[in-house]
Design a protein around this nucleic acid. Structure first.
Length: 803
RNA sequence: GGGCCCGUGGUGGAAUGGUUAACACGUUCGCCUCACACGCGAAAGAUUCCCGGUUCGAUCCCGGGCGGGCCCACCA
């Protein structure tokens, strides 16, 4: 029989990882299997090069579920992908190689990403993730591009995708459109200027007014002046015009969003000073004036054309001052959006972009979400709350390089849009010329898709949508979508939207949310604080199973939790205990083959522990239903450690150590075998390596894996509720005698000459069933029993030798 | 300003409308008892944030306050 490992460390774990791979333990059965399919749509991590503890936590969750469902008899489909295309990669590659022509640059990005994936994949494997790598996907692959393009072409032909000129976040420094997630907020001090305007009624009367602004240089793009309709100072001017300090006449309009308290209660709308201006522009159907070019220089500004903002601001203020229109200036604290990569202030710019019609789909998305099971249930409120505030359609194009090409051409003559043909996919429009029907040249779109366009079809990718109808039917929708809370409004929201549009069916049935891992000090992990926990180092020191136990213990779903070294410490101790118990069972049961026959000779105490096992199995079953991993750990660990090890192993030692084979001894061996093997199976999804290691002592075939066994189920065979009285009584007595010995500063195995025990009559018959166990565990020679109103004990202990 | 979550021994955190509020780490004391010192046993340590209310009874339900976290919006 196999010798168990000295230690359950990462070396031992590697052995089992290789074993699983060799025996293809995690293969999805594509054909033939009659087992129900359970599919998991896991998040493809962004290929940064390293997993962080958040990945480790969430991927542990997915893996617990995958392994559990397999043991429950599901045909588990657990693919894993990579989200490759993103700005951070471009930045890193540019830093390393400098700027290059697009095709060459893209190749360098791919190369870089390949390395990142290889490292992250090996990190995942070290954690024991049981993904089926046969179905690995990467968003930068041509096959993936093809699906993304196809999905957009379909949405385009359904009228869901369109091209339009629209203000987007723009970095004048990098000359690219940005997603809101690419921006940071920065506090900075600015100056608020009061500038003289005029109000003009229909009758030609003029009145002076004041506008407070931090951006006077945008005044040439002012298209309206607004006031709050509750503001009595201005209600009488409704329908009037305002004249800007530059002499331009613009409408004066009421709007509820204007803050009465701020400044004079008047605000100028400039296209596009900030996002609020854009909202107002659409709301009041105002014309727009392009205030600056893509490098941040003013345009349509007359004498100020070509100036950068700061210079323009200086000049225009000087002008107003000379004309007596600058009334006052004072400092003001202001938060500005800056590009997170270059730190420069972000502007809003009008440009041609591609959009997906999401605003009128909000109710549909929320309805679909409500039909899914959200765990925890409150998490759906993040999506509902977000849907409520979606004001604009989704900008799906980005002026970047490393992304999925947008499969459209635009005629330079008649502006007609020419979509790629399905057989051309994956298309790379900039490299290809097209002719329009009108005879004009059509130019290939040079922008690429927002990365959420890529990742919002993962349920379609993994189910081979539009590729393998049979496979699709078996694996769509996904049974489970596990993901982080912070990407509900992006990944979950867009995925539900896109998959509904494309298939008419919601993409998953259950969502499992996880929170973030904070540093041990409760703060966010960050390089600058130096409080980052590196997964690799942790695995080296403590092993993957310890880390997985930590993850399971952090199982308060969708809540952030500090990383806990004490959980890791506990986990290591537990695994050590688990292994040592295995060694004991292995030795105790050497030469013994479990047989149901032996169950006929079970003692009361044996039945009691089987009964307790059964209760624990029941507890775990309901915990699994709700993905309460910490309850599974708690119930199974407590039973294993503080009942099975602390008491039961002590109770049976006497029988186990007896030389000759007897029905009594075999009953103990049967029980050790049954309980320990069931505990292994209970824990196998959470600590698979350790369980595989100790499972060897029960293995009958060389390549059989604990992962392929059936998960324990509660059974009548184990149920012996009538033994509880005796079991609990024995525990109480042992504990009290140990306490007595501890009080007398004696070692636990010090002999007791005589135990005088008083018990209520109704407990006496319980006691008689466990008397032998008490005697052997506490090293008692003689027990004197008598009836009493309550339990009491008295020990007679021989005096220690004087010498 | 809006939404959501949370406030439990030194620390991290379970649970529950009802007798002594888990468990782990840490601490104290005693034990190397033939699976395990990454161990065994014993023990100390909590007004379950505060104030009201519902209830026979609240840590749990409701209201208010104070405090913390996350997300969103605004910042002319």
């Amino acid at each position: 029989m196999a010798e168990l490992a000295q230690r359950l460390d990462c070396k031992c774990e590697e052995k089992w990882q290789a074993f699983w791979e060799k025996n293809k333990c995690f293969s999805f059965d594509e054909k033939g299997s009659s087992l129900p399919v359970y599919s998991i749509d896991t998040p493809p991590p962004f290929t940064s090069g390293d997993l962080h503890m958040g990945h480790v936590l969430s991927y542990s969750y997915f893996d617990f579920v995958a392994r559990y469902k397999r043991m429950q008899g599901y045909n588990v489909y657990f693919p894993q992908g990579w989200d490759c295309q993103g700005f951070p990669t471009e930045v890193r590659v540019e830093k390393k190689h400098g700027r290059k022509p697009p095709e060459e640059f893209r190749a360098l990005c791919r190369q870089w990403t390949e390395q990142c994936i290889s490292n992250m994949k090996s990190q995942m494997q070290r954690m024991g993730f049981s993904a089926d790598w046969k179905y690995e996907y990467r968003t930068m692959d041509p096959s993936y591009h093809k699906k993304v393009q196809l999905s957009i072409l379909k949405m385009h032909s359904a009228g869901q995708v369109y091209r339009a000129k629209h203000p987007v976040f723009w970095c004048p420094n990098c000359r690219s459109a940005l997603a809101k997630t690419d921006t940071d907020e920065m506090e900075r001090s600015s100056t608020l200027h009061d500038i003289k305007f005029e109000l003009q009624t229909g009758k030609g009367e003029k009145k002076e007014a004041i506008i407070s602004t931090t951006r006077p240089e945008l005044m040439h793009a002012c298209v309206a002046v607004l006031f709050n309709p509750k503001d009595s100072r201005y209600t009488k001017y409704s329908g009037a015009n305002a004249i800007t300090a530059l002499g331009k006449v613009v409408p004066l309009l009421p709007d509820n969003d204007v803050d009465i308290e701020f400044g004079s209660g008047l605000v100028m709308v400039c296209t596009f000073g900030d996002k609020q201006d854009v909202v107002w522009m659409y709301r009041h159907k105002l014309p727009h004036i392009e205030a600056m070019d893509d490098a941040g220089r003013l345009k349509n500004a007359g004498e100020f054309d070509g100036l950068k903002c700061e210079e323009a601001k200086k000049k225009i203020l000087e002008k107003f001052k000379n004309e007596g229109k600058l009334l006052s200036s004072r400092p003001i604290a202001q938060a500005v959006k800056v590009h997170d990569r270059c730190g420069k202030a972000v502007e809003l710019a009008n440009s041609w972009q591609w959009f997906a019609k999401i605003t009128d789909k909000r109710a549909r998305i929320v309805d679909a979400a409500k039909k899914m099971k959200w765990i925890p249930s409150f998490a759906i409120s993040h999506l509902e709350n977000w849907a409520e505030f979606v004001e604009w359609d989704w900008v799906i194009s980005r002026q970047r390089i490393f992304g999925t090409p947008i499969p459209f051409w635009v005629c330079e003559k008649c502006s007609k849009i020419i979509p790629a043909k399905e057989e051309e996919l994956p298309a790379n429009p900039p490299t290809q010329k097209k002719k329009c029907l009108c005879g004009g040249d059509a130019k290939g779109e040079t922008s690429v898709f927002d990365c959420w366009v890529d990742s919002s079809i993962t349920p379609l990718i993994i189910s081979k949508w539009e590729e393998d109808e049979k496979f699709f039917k078996r694996t769509y929708p996904s049974s489970l979508r596990p993901q982080g809370v912070e990407i509900i409004r992006t990944w979950a929201f867009y995925t539900i939207y896109r998959c509904l549009e494309l298939t008419g069916k919601p993409p998953f049935t259950e969502l499992l949310l996880n929170g973030n891992v904070l540093a041990p000090d409760g703060k966010k992990m960050s390089k600058s604080l130096g409080n980052i926990i590196a997964p690799d180092k942790l695995i080296d020191e403590s092993g993957a199973d310890s880390v997985r136990i930590w993850a399971a213990l952090s199982g308060a779903m969708a809540k952030d939790r500090p990383f806990s070294h004490q959980d890791i410490k506990y986990a290591k101790s537990f695994l050590n205990k688990f292994l040592n118990a295995g060694k004991f069972v292995q030795k105790a049961n050497a030469g013994y083959t479990s047989s149901q026959e032996d169950a006929k000779n079970l003692r009361t105490i044996d039945k009691y522990f089987l009964h307790r096992l059964n209760e624990v199995i029941t507890t775990c079953a309901s915990a699994w239903e709700n993905y309460e991993f910490h309850h599974i750990i708690k119930a199974s660990h407590d039973f294993f450690w503080h009942e099975f090890c602390d008491y039961y192993l002590e109770y049976v030692k006497n029988r186990i150590y007896s030389k000759e084979d007897s029905p009594d001894k075999r009953a103990a061996q049967y029980c050790l075998h049954t309980i320990y093997s069931q505990i292994i199976l209970l824990l196998a999804p959470i600590t698979p390596h350790a369980c595989e290691e100790v499972w060897q002592i029960f293995k009958n075939k060389e390549n059989s894996s604990v992962q392929l066994e059936k998960y324990p189920q509660a059974s009548k065979i184990f149920s012996h509720p009538s033994t509880a009285g005796a079991g609990k009584l024995l525990e109480t007595l042992v504990s009290q005698i140990r306490q007595e010995k501890a009080n007398k500063k004696l070692s636990l195995n010090s002999p007791v000459q005589k135990l005088s025990l008083a018990l209520p009559k109704e407990q006496m018959h319980f006691f008689e069933k466990v008397e032998d166990e008490l005697k052997s565990v506490c090293n008692i020679e003689e027990i004197e029993k008598k009836d009493g109103s309550e339990l009491s004990i008295k020990l007679s202990i021989p005096e220690p030798d004087a010498g």
